[in-house]
């Protein structure tokens, strides 16, 4: 069973909400990335989105753009991330989702990329510039045993598209809570509560909310509707400001996970 599905099934059994983080691979360096993943596994983070840096991250706000830029400057590329994960997978089973742009996959070669994900143990993919209609070329290779799940994203403006997008979706559905790009304020889109309800009603799989979340309190108003929260830009900022201090990262993650599940 895919690690994401396995993890989410366990959480459902325990009636726990998922805590998911986003981090850019290669920061502060490859070794550091590995340590941050391990410490998060200890802290109780359920799933990690690992950002593969790209030169033109058009779906990201300034914080992730900057992280992406820095990581590329340090020489991070897909091959190095695969190598790092191969080593990590020897003793770390936390579900990992690659967050990347389509050109990186396309350039690497679709089939070769999927094969490599299977070999290394990449559990999911989030490709923000590959909307539902454009997924066919890649999806052809995702039926293979052990292939990563292509996570589907929906936005408040998706409306009538939601049933189509969720029809065959697996893993979890990523709900963009505000408009536009990552890292904006947690001021929710005006119809956000209603929208999350709609998604939850249609979806057969867990519903996660992302974009603009800093603390567990930010999801207070919609906690009953969602199955988990995703923290990206704020997490990147926090790590950078603490100079990637593992203790601080651990505390933030364990507190968030705890508060998210306190009623």
């Amino acid at each position: 069973m895919n690690r994401i599905e396995e993890k989410l099934a366990k959480l459902k059994e325990k009636k726990e909400k998922a805590f998911i983080t986003y981090m850019t691979a290669g920061l502060p360096d490859m070794e550091g990335t590995k340590e941050i993943i391990r410490i998060q596994e200890q802290a109780g983070t359920d799933i990690i989105e690992l950002g593969i840096p790209f030169s033109d991250p058009a779906a990201d706000g300034p914080i992730i753009q900057q992280a992406s830029f820095e990581s590329i400057q340090k020489g991070t590329n897909l091959t190095k991330v695969f190598n790092m994960l191969e080593d990590l997978r020897k003793d770390c089973e936390i579900p990992i989702v690659f967050m990347m742009y389509y050109n990186t996959v396309f350039h690497y070669g679709l089939e070769r990329f999927v094969e490599k994900c299977i070999q290394i143990g990449v559990d999911g993919l989030i490709i923000p510039d590959l909307p539902y209609e454009a997924q066919g070329d890649l999806a052809k290779f995702l039926d293979k045993k052990g292939a990563p799940i292509l996570i589907q994203l929906v936005a408040p403006v998706s409306k009538k598209r939601i049933p189509m997008i969720l029809k065959n979706a697996r893993g979890f559905v990523y709900c963009v809570s505000s408009m536009g790009v990552t890292g904006q304020d947690a001021t929710f889109h005006k119809d956000v509560v209603e929208y999350l309800h709609t998604v939850k009603e249609i979806s057969n799989i867990p519903v996660m909310m992302g974009f603009g979340i800093r603390t567990a309190k930010d999801v207070d108003g919609v906690r009953d509707t969602i199955d988990g929260a995703i923290v990206g830009s704020h997490f990147i900022k926090l790590m950078k400001e603490s100079d990637y201090n593992l203790e601080e990262i651990k505390n933030y993650c364990s507190n968030f996970k705890k508060e998210l599940n306190q009623y």
Binding site: Y102, P131, R161, G180
Partner: peptide
């Protein structure tokens, strides 16, 4: 060609 944009722009 095609449309390689985020989901939030598809309806637009």
């Amino acid at each position: 060609g095609g449309q390689y944009v985020s989901e939030s722009l598809m309806n637009t």
